[in-house]
Design a binder for these strands. Sequence first.
DNA 1: TTAGATGATTTGCA
DNA 2: TGCAAATCATCTAA
Length: 430
Amino acid sequence: MDERLLGPPPPGGGRGGLGLVGGEPGGPGEPPGGGDPGGGGGGVPGGRGKQDIGDILQQIMTITDQSLDEAQAKKHALNCHRMKPALFSVLCEIKEKTGLSIRSAQEEEPVDPQLMRLDNMLLAEGVAGPEKGGGSAAAAAAAAASGGGVSPDNSIEHSDYRSKLAQIRHIYHSELEKYEQACNEFTTHVMNLLREQSRTRPVAPKEMERMVSIIHRKFSAIQMQLKQSTCEAVMILRSRFLDARRKRRNFSKQATEVLNEYFYSHLSNPYPSEEAKEELAKKCGITVSQVSNWFGNKRIRYKKNIGKFQEEANIYAVKTAVSVTQGGHSRTSSPTPPSSAGSGGSFNLSGSGDMFLGMPGLNGDSYSASQVESLRHSMGPGGYGESLGGGQMYSPREMRANGGWQEAVTPSSVTSPTEGPGSVHSDTSN
DNA sequence: TTAGATGATTTGCA
DNA sequence: TGCAAATCATCTAA
């Protein structure tokens, strides 16, 4: 008998039936119980033998229609049938000759690139692989994508993102576990069935291996679907939380005031240096790039509609002037302790009065009471409105230099109280 | 619901 | 690289 084939089980009466585990098949050469009337073992006996085989086949054919008990009884009878070993041998021979059993069972399947991509992505997102603090890598990406803002809203969104990602991770792992369990159970079941079948038909170990690999392939296809769905879920989550770059929040009132204070107190040259931007960013709880954006927007919108911003300019001018006349200690808008001012006390946005009273500005500007007085005079009854002569137009090219901004936007009479007309401290690039 | 305000992005320039 | 200008997309108050 072909060594690939499992030997027939011992047909002995006591060990028949469904003995899935206990029914250890006998050795290949084990003589069948009850003797072989036909002699020669593997040969198909003629006459009576043919009839017996026909009976057996008939039994096999009808077995599916019987109740389980009947089937088992028949199975038992089949296993005990004296002609069974002969039939088994014939089947082995046929199988060997036709060669239909095994088609290179061990085809090495190349790793599916799609599966690799999915695995890599799940790993990168922190869904697969070891827990990374609920996807801290993705959260970091989130922080980067949102400009690195440090506002509480951002952190809320990120924690929300993390919790959602953790949810996806949890579902993914539980589903994966279920699939693996189901796969193992199914494989075991099939293996048992094959072992059982090997009692009545030749089943090669390689055939079983092949069956197992087919099962695994099917289950890995299901797994791939699971991974794909998970990836899609993560992508949706990302697009909702991270890629909504244009999703924005207005800055806090305090932050806007801080920025406006700086802008109007440096109206002659509203180009904060890098250090100034950093200080402002720190003060406002926003990023440096947000500060840059804000000043960019502010400059352009101020220029476009000076008339509209006159009122705002007045408000900030009055604020600063009032705080100066009141002694320079009132905190009108941004109550920030002086200790939190810029390094070396070079910048104090919080106290408008301080801004005018000898406190060097962000860019090394210093203010004097006389400057404040001149400001108050310049405002006169009409405030900035008259002085600015709303609606002044200027060439954008002129705006590329500090002088250009000053000439075009801020007449000398209302030059920022914090800076002299020729001040170029704010931004050397302009 | 809508118009205006506003933060962010894109494009082109020097 | 920083800025101006245009534009987009969202927020907010009426």
